[in-house]
Design a protein around this nucleic acid. Sequence first.
DNA 1: CACACTTACGATATTCGTAAGGATT
DNA 2: AATCCTTACGAATATCGTAAGTGTG
Lengths: 299, 299
Amino acid sequence: MMNITARQLRAFVALADEHHFTRAAARCHQTQPAFSALIKSLEDALGVRLFERSTRRVELTAEGRLLNRSATRLLRDMEAVVQDVRDHVAIRKGRVSVAALPSLAAGWLPDIYARFHAEHPGVELTLHDALLEPCLALVRSGAADIAVAAQGVDMSGLDAETLYEDAFYLVCRDDHPLARKRAVRLRDIEGCAMIQLGKGSSVRQSLIRNSAFRKLGTFLEVDHLATVTGLVVAGLGVSLVPAMTLFQFKHARLRVIPLVRQDAVKRSLYLIRRSDRGLSSAAQAFYDVLLRERAALGT
Amino acid sequence: MMNITARQLRAFVALADEHHFTRAAARCHQTQPAFSALIKSLEDALGVRLFERSTRRVELTAEGRLLNRSATRLLRDMEAVVQDVRDHVAIRKGRVSVAALPSLAAGWLPDIYARFHAEHPGVELTLHDALLEPCLALVRSGAADIAVAAQGVDMSGLDAETLYEDAFYLVCRDDHPLARKRAVRLRDIEGCAMIQLGKGSSVRQSLIRNSAFRKLGTFLEVDHLATVTGLVVAGLGVSLVPAMTLFQFKHARLRVIPLVRQDAVKRSLYLIRRSDRGLSSAAQAFYDVLLRERAALGT
DNA sequence: CACACTTACGATATTCGTAAGGATT
DNA sequence: AATCCTTACGAATATCGTAAGTGTG
């Protein structure tokens, strides 16, 4: 029947090259009679003699020359396809697209990206920094492999693996009345001018979900953490933000103060992916790195 | 190992298409367990799972999608190459190049070309009309598959199969003294003004080789048979030409007269090809047609 | 419980390597 | 006589189909 194998093509090319059964057989790591049979099987499959052979001469026939023009290319194509798949499996090639909340995208992930890229330089990395719902939408649509985010309202079709419990801290200027405290209570903050992130942010959502913190006033509402920093530095108010965002508040005049244990509030962060399909090898490797980094987060 | 078969690729494409083992197996004319094993063998060869399968869902993995993009093209390429070879074997495609003496190229071959083309419209035909030595050179170099010609001085590396013994006839105008004879003797011609072809022509060579005819005078020497015709019609002389050229002398005022048996002279025509390589299927088919037509030449 | 993929297993077909055969120089 | 391709043949391997097993909706 019409079932050509890569081995037949390799044998054909080797023989067309060597003009010698014994040598071509050796090149294919076979005994010569087995190699002969392999050539014969190809000739039978094609219904035509591909080599004129006597004991002293091995030459391509007209049809052999015809096949020879295509066979090398065909074989190379074939091996390229196989190699490509293997490169992806071995994570020498690939693409990973991650969607992450802005705080994580700017604070936690860059180092991980750098290390992953150093280990797998052939893999294209994409990072979407987006608010919670857009993050989930990216994963749902397949545009992103993984989201690093909080849970959304609708998590159907998504798998969430707990990543980190991100504790909130009070951020204030050094001349604020609370600036000297080692830990603050909810009650301490209630009277303060609060600078909050927009309601689409997971930081704000986490506070809204917590009944104790829901009644906190909002003096100003902004979209970006950097703006919060600026406003607090300017002395317009204080803010409550999770640990993962604190890299934004490294400033000489700012103080970061934990909440006392009984008033602690956290936002839960998850690794999120589609439940209906597995990850590519590269994406799985990235996912595994994220899981491994989770341990380091505890410190 | 790395031995991909066409069947594996066909199975893969079928399953990627159907998303259903049982249906894909049927499409490949196999039982479902055998088909399963075939997919598994491909997955093992590539070292990666290509389908996510539960009993209710069959979906491509990321690597499967990667392969799917190439597999269809690869399979089509493969089948195209095989089909191309088979088309050549079945003489639906191909190329035949024939070198023939001018007399044969113009007189005998055109009909054969027409019939061969009607039977094998996909085969490209080339006809080189050339004198004897160029004809042989074309075959020797591989530029022509077959020559229809006389034997040359050097026939090494060439096989010659007898085609036809081409008897010479006297051609003269109707008012010539010999025009009324039923057959002429060598002696009758010796005094005539002879119009001859150039010494490179096989017609002239055949006469030169025959000792009895070597002493014939040459009144005029020209290159083309058509010119001979014109000169004879003009009454400048007579000519001796082989039967295969007589189509050139169909003219109301010309007479064609055989030689008496004891003075008969012939040129031998051969089918000539390289002895060191076989013919392509198409060329062989053409060769066979020429051999078959040889029988018709006897009449 | 019905459908669908996997595993088990014996039968068949293919492929392999060793050894003998035959052709060419 | 030496080289080298083919054929012969028993052994190892692969593939097939039937039947039983397993998991999912």
